[in-house]
Amino acid sequence: MTRDVIGKFNRRGFMAGGAALLAAPAVAQDVNSTNTTEVERDLNEVVRRNISSFRSLSWEPYFDNLSNGAVLVDITSRALHFWSEDHSVYRLYPTSVPLTEDLTKRGRTKVVRKVVGPSWRPTPAMRKRNPEWPEFVGPGPDNPLGTHAMYLSWTYYRIHGTHDTRKIGRRSSNGCIGLYNEHIEQLFNLCKVGTQVLLI
């Protein structure tokens, strides 16, 4: 790389992105897992993830203020950004995103409920597409919502964890945004009911 090209990199963005990637569990994957209720393809297939857009952002182009904190989910770069109300905390996390464009919802919403150890029921549309899925899954390692879930004001939409770490960085959900369980626990503790959320 030339010195001019290197100079164009945003050092702060590189450091934030690098720190988030180092924090992501790289080996905690059970390739024999059968919990594949939301998949893009065979999860045993190796996928090269594009992290070219995984960079730090400023909140100002997306929010008028940071009242109650703010979450930005970028579907294209498969990244979630969080800014605290007092401007002291910024976090950047890799995510899973919806399988298809018709399952993707964009726009403004907010956190309306927070649950540790959530239970899960497939939506009517999911049951229609996948009648073999269970009607109910309680908290635990088979739950697609992982260890924590933040319910949004949009019906059926959540930001949640996942026990199936192969999903992160992929189009693998039926509309929700998934994070590593370690990351959703951090975000869960940073967010409050009323935190602003924008999906772009």
Results as ranks from 00 to 15, higher is better:
residue 16 A to M: 14
residue 18 G to F: 15
residue 21 L to D: 11
residue 25 P to W: 11
residue 27 V to R: 14
residue 27 V to W: 14
residue 30 D to I: 06
residue 31 V to E: 14
residue 32 N to Y: 15
residue 37 T to K: 09
residue 38 E to P: 01
residue 40 E to I: 06
residue 40 E to D: 10
residue 40 E to T: 02
residue 41 R to W: 07
residue 42 D to E: 02
residue 44 N to A: 07
residue 48 R to S: 14
residue 48 R to P: 01
residue 53 S to I: 12
residue 54 F to I: 09
residue 54 F to V: 05
residue 57 L to S: 13
residue 58 S to T: 15
residue 67 S to P: 09
residue 67 S to Y: 15
residue 67 S to A: 12
residue 69 G to I: 01
residue 74 D to Y: 07
residue 77 S to V: 03
residue 78 R to E: 04
residue 80 L to V: 03
residue 80 L to S: 04
residue 81 H to Q: 08
residue 84 S to Y: 07
residue 86 D to L: 05
residue 87 H to T: 12
residue 87 H to E: 15
residue 89 V to Y: 06
residue 90 Y to F: 12
residue 93 Y to N: 01
residue 100 T to V: 09
residue 101 E to C: 05
residue 101 E to L: 08
residue 103 L to W: 11
residue 104 T to I: 05
residue 112 V to F: 11
residue 115 V to T: 09
residue 120 W to Q: 03
residue 127 R to C: 02
residue 128 K to N: 10
residue 130 N to K: 08
residue 132 E to A: 07
residue 134 P to G: 00
residue 135 E to Q: 14
residue 138 G to N: 04
residue 145 L to F: 10
residue 145 L to Y: 00
residue 153 S to E: 13
residue 155 T to W: 14
residue 161 G to N: 00
residue 162 T to L: 01
residue 169 G to H: 02
residue 172 S to H: 00
residue 175 G to K: 05
residue 184 I to P: 03
residue 185 E to M: 10
residue 196 Q to T: 06
residue 199 L to G: 05
